[in-house]
Each structure stands twice: as structure tokens, then as C-alpha cells.
Simulated scan of single mutants.
Amino acid sequence: MHEKRMELYRQVEAATQIPWYYIAAVDQYERNVREARRDLPDPSGTAAIYIKPEEWSGLLNPNHSDNNPASIQFFQGTGFDGNGDGKAQLENDEDVLHAFAQQLLSFGTSHDNIRIGLWNYYHRDKAVGIIMDKAKIYKHFGRLDLDSHAFPVPLRSNHSYKNTWGDARGWGGRRIHEGTDIFAGYGVPVRATGYGIVEMKGWNKYGGWRVGIRDINNNYHYYAHLSGFSEDLKTGQVVKPGQVIGGVGSSGYGPPGTSGKFPPHLHYGMYKDNGYSEWSFDPYPHLRMWERQERIQSKK
């Protein structure tokens, strides 16, 4: 599937001069959004960009199943014949990708122009930021297969954890625990769990020294109560599974520098963006799976 998608992205790049990683980023963003929402159909083809039938054919077009490029253009629809077969078909991956590319192309092919084109399409700053970051990740690694993971602390470290998602928390007001606590020694390395980009780094009165990393699947990974950060870690940096980003600590629950109000541990949270909002979900099953996968891999 990754090979088929890359072939499509390269075809669009050759025809439009829009770098493939921007097309890949949009397609992946839409795939993640469609999988997270019930008001959109699940992606079924190689590509996942969703265009409403009435927008494809033209809002005033009496035939929303129209695949004639001439009539679609007459009614100012977005449909486009991307594979040269004389039809603009919403069910055809090439046509859909080229149709979206045409909308970006009207603004230009530079980094800044593509950002403007994305904002004109989504009208949401966060969506634009996520897509541009995905493009940066794809460009950095030069491939689409970026689904492997690592456990957030070294397996050889003395650590323990259980499912604590949803537990009550009292400091700073009544709230629930949006994550899993992994207890380990002070300074034990904390590692990125997947391919992603550092979206946030700094202090939070609840989480202390913390890092936020957005992965290729729209998941936001939150690492809190750190003892500090890796020296070279910075916002906007691309990371890979197992890369050290900081150390286990006990920071938080007060102004910057507050530490020691609880035993050293890593608070690990996961959040999902669906194109409208973002919410937390239980990371415990993922942690168990990644730990098991890494142990199996280490024995090979």
C-alpha cells in the first residue's frame, strides 16, 4: 500500500511540481480524520482525500454524479481528470489527488504558498500546522512507512506502570488523569515512542517540564514531569522511535522549577485530533503493545 501511494504522489508531483511530501501529508491527515469521525465515510481506496459529491460536480450542477470534465468546469466544480481518460471520477484516486493538487496549484508551489492554499481549503490553523509538520516528517525520512514504535523508557530500566487513565486528580481542582504513569528512577532516559515532530516543549504548572510530539497519525504524545530535556531537543524537530528526548523526573505542581512533590515518574498521555477538536484517550493498551513488540524485536 505504501508503494502504491508513493507512486500516486510522485505522479502528482511530476504533473504539478508540488513536492510529493505535501500531497502525502494532506492524504494522511484526511485518512486520520476520516478514521476518527463518524460523519465522514471511512477511506476505502489507496488515497483518502474526501471531497463532497456536490463540490466535485459543482454546487449548481443538477447531476452530482457528473464525471464530465467540461460540465463540471461549467458548474465550477472541483472535479478533475487526473489520469487522462476523459472522465473526472470521484472514485478514482488519481483524479481526486490531482483535483486537490489543482487547488493548491492556484496559489503556487513554494512552501509559503502551499501553506496559504491549505488555509484557504481548511480554514483552520491547527489543520494547516499538522499537515505542514507531516510534510516535514515525510521529507526528512523520504518514505511513507513510519509506523514502528518504541516503549518510552528503556526496557532494561527498573520501571513499573498500570492503567491509571481516568483516575481522579485533586491538585489544581477536580480533574481526571489523562494518561499512564510509568514509575522509574530519577533521570532514566525518556524516549520518543514514534516518528513525529516536537510540537511543544517547556513548563506547565501541572506537568512540569514536558514535551509534546505529534506523530504521523494525528496522535499527540504528551511526556510530563521530566527532570529535563535532551540538550539538542527543540520545537519543530523531527524525531524517531527510541530517540532520547529527556529524563524521568518529579517536576510540576507549581511555578517553574518546582520538583519533588511526588515520586519520580513519567506521565504519558495520548490525544487525537479529528479536524475539529482534540481529546485524550487511554494510552495503556498502546504502551503494553509497544513494550511487547520491542521485547520480541530485541530477541531476534
Rank of each mutant, 00 (worst) to 15 (best):
Q76L: 08
N67P: 03
R31D: 05
H64D: 13
A70K: 13
R38M: 14
I72S: 06
L60E: 14
N68Q: 11
G77H: 01
L60D: 15
T78G: 00
S44A: 14
K52N: 14
N67Q: 11
L40C: 03
P62L: 01
K52H: 14
E55M: 13
F80D: 02
G77Y: 01
N67G: 05
F74D: 08
G58Q: 02
I49F: 10
G58T: 02
S57F: 12
L59V: 13
R38Y: 13
E30Q: 15
A70W: 04
F75D: 00
G77L: 02
D42A: 13
N68I: 05
N68R: 10
N68E: 11
T46S: 12
P62F: 01
S57N: 12
W56T: 07
N68G: 04
S65F: 14
S65N: 15
R37H: 11
Q73K: 11
I72T: 04
R37L: 09
W56A: 05
Q73E: 09
N67E: 14
Q73L: 06
I49N: 09
F80Y: 14
P62E: 00
Q76W: 03
F75Y: 09
P69S: 07
W56C: 05
Q76P: 00
G58C: 01
L60S: 14
I51N: 09
W56L: 04
Y29L: 05
Y50G: 10
P62H: 00
I49H: 09
A36W: 05
N63S: 07
F75G: 00
G58E: 01
R34I: 03
K52F: 10
D66R: 09
D66M: 07
S71W: 03
Q73F: 02
S57V: 13
L59I: 14
G82W: 00
A36Q: 11
F75R: 00
F74M: 10
V33H: 01
S71Y: 04
L59D: 08
G79E: 04
E54D: 15
D42R: 15
G77N: 01
S44N: 11
R31F: 08
Y50M: 09
R31M: 10
E35T: 06
Q76F: 07
N68T: 04
D66Y: 06
Y29W: 11
H64F: 14
N61V: 08
E54F: 15
G79R: 02
Q73I: 00
T78K: 13
R34D: 07
N63L: 05
L40Y: 08
A48M: 05
T78H: 05
G77I: 03
S65A: 13
Q73T: 07
G77K: 03
W56G: 08
N68P: 04
R37T: 09
S71H: 06
H64L: 10
G77P: 00
D39Q: 10
F74A: 12
P41S: 09
S65I: 07
P43Q: 03
A47N: 12
N67R: 12
N67V: 14
P69R: 05
S65V: 07
D66E: 07
P69C: 07
L40N: 04
T46M: 11
G77A: 02
F74I: 10
R34F: 05
N63G: 06
D81R: 06
L60W: 12
P62D: 01
R31K: 14
P69H: 06
A36V: 00
A36F: 05
A47G: 13
